[in-house]
Design a binder for these strands. Sequence first.
DNA 1: ACTTGCTAAACAAACGTTTGCGTTCACAAT
DNA 2: ATTGTGAACGCAAACGTTTGTTTAGCAAGT
Lengths: 342, 342
Amino acid sequence: MNSKPATIKEIARRLGISPSSVSRGLHDHGSIGSAMKEKIRTVAQELNYEPNQTAIFLQKGKTHTIGVILPELSESFFSSAITAIEDIANKKNYQVMFAQSHDDEAKEKLLVEKMKSHRVDGLIVSVAKSTSSYEHFTKLSSQNIPVVFFDRIPSVTNVHSVACDMETGTIQAVQYLLKKGHRAIGMINGPSNLLASTQRKEGYIKAFGSQRLKYDPSMIVTSDLTENGTLIAMEQLLIIKRKPTAIVAFNDYISLYAIKYARKLGLVINKDIEFVSYSNLPLIHYMDHIPSASVEQHPYLQGQKAADMLMDLLSNKDTEQQGFYRVIIESELVENRTGGIL
Amino acid sequence: MNSKPATIKEIARRLGISPSSVSRGLHDHGSIGSAMKEKIRTVAQELNYEPNQTAIFLQKGKTHTIGVILPELSESFFSSAITAIEDIANKKNYQVMFAQSHDDEAKEKLLVEKMKSHRVDGLIVSVAKSTSSYEHFTKLSSQNIPVVFFDRIPSVTNVHSVACDMETGTIQAVQYLLKKGHRAIGMINGPSNLLASTQRKEGYIKAFGSQRLKYDPSMIVTSDLTENGTLIAMEQLLIIKRKPTAIVAFNDYISLYAIKYARKLGLVINKDIEFVSYSNLPLIHYMDHIPSASVEQHPYLQGQKAADMLMDLLSNKDTEQQGFYRVIIESELVENRTGGIL
DNA sequence: ACTTGCTAAACAAACGTTTGCGTTCACAAT
DNA sequence: ATTGTGAACGCAAACGTTTGTTTAGCAAGT
């Protein structure tokens, strides 16, 4: 009952043969008699033999484990993404070792060290908001441990990455509103140091351009992504003489904050003012007053691509690395159906 | 740049001493000269030495890794719980290897095997809904790999577990409604094979008993936890001559389905009918029409206790096991503030 | 009878570390 | 001069596996 797990050695001892023969017998590997092979198999069965992976890891120098570091599991974006990563990894017989940085750069660095010392074969990372330097990652790559970034990717170019292009989705979103007849379209954008903010702004401008309309720069305001910052942004928008009849919000949360504020002012959603945002959170489906459309960022797909990329890097580890993978996923506007009674 | 990571052997070679001395030097372990110790340390620094955990794992027979298997990461309950587990584990220098069963028993079994072959030191599990046999887990325990169950725990007694007692929370919930003057209180319960359902029913009955009131058995109906099943349950409740003025719903989702239905019938929430449920999901805080209170199940705390328990089992692995840990956390009613404008 | 060639198995080294047990040496105590 | 003591280190085994290199045995070809 409390016996140590069976080993190859034990099997060898029982059969009076050498461990190496047992190993070969179990692997169809080298030269081994089919009679003996059978015997080995049956004894292995009897003893309930399972290979000790730690020994194999040491021997092969691989752990068949990939590390995943991401900011917050409670964000549904990331829980979808990691589910995808897990699925792919499992399919390829890899295990996932994961940890959350909680958007703390120091913690992130610590985790990278831990992962390294656990000898993960590769790493998938979505960096913390506060992360400003990337040496801890480049150190990994230089030690031949591939790193793939996704969604929140460093602004440097010499890394492998998967990300979603917000520009196309934004163009779709604005065109969607234009087609509906809106002309005064506000945008609540995020902090300007984020690539995602730049892309949203670009998309906004291009959408207007594509219809040969010109846009009002004062219609683009910035929120620090808190509820309060969003209220301030809304005030800025609603002060404009030509009041916006539609607003593109940075994400669904921002949208909900803004909607709440608009309703407080007595505005009727989708009548006086319409919202479009990003993320397409599941919680939307339980609510009455929601953005009429949302730009989907495909978290599952991003996770999938990132995992595929890492798997590819791992299997071609020996062959000389040439350049860096850089996958861009197109974001995509989807219309929302409310889950409420309205 | 692309060099193999430094090893103890390499350090030993450079200093012309034996690997064992290096090991001791790095660990303050056995007898080692302080001068030599210094030299060892500096060389280790220079070479950027990091111990190869896989070798240590093999040598020590421990991986300092715990496995976590749970049904769905996208449920906020579980993402909180695993965050707690991760926090505790990290504090004790353990890494987390995790996987989702997606409520599929076959997948769960597979995962257990994978975890075992990766030689996790212990396992924390919240079992899949469909899981009916537990041999795959008992096999682990018998191999001296401790297993701790949390939240969804097997109905057998010879396991370690952490769970939340729904009865006390239910008593609080019903008493809360009684105190508010409600007398016709409905309950939408879950499938009767769940322990959690039994506890809810018991709590309901006890709460009435404690006020020397008697309850109407037809007030307790069952939902299969889908939206449609919940509508049927609502119909059953609203058919009763003495219509319920308040309803205790199995969880927040059920509550939201029920609220949606009630509103469709023109009922005004918290006036014509009041809801109380379980889970205390974050999404509640964004909505207008919500249960006025919710029974908190303390996912973070459950994860914490489960991790603590496992850590304890791991550190006392050698000492003979006597009995099983069984921690019960009291559920607790918390009043909700709406995040909407109402 | 002697090389060849083949199969089936053993041998041994290796992966990187830890650790019990020696060994050596210097020096103090007898 | 002998013994004891302790410090500082080396040796070697061990963890469980894989894998390149023998070796042994045996049948077939010359």
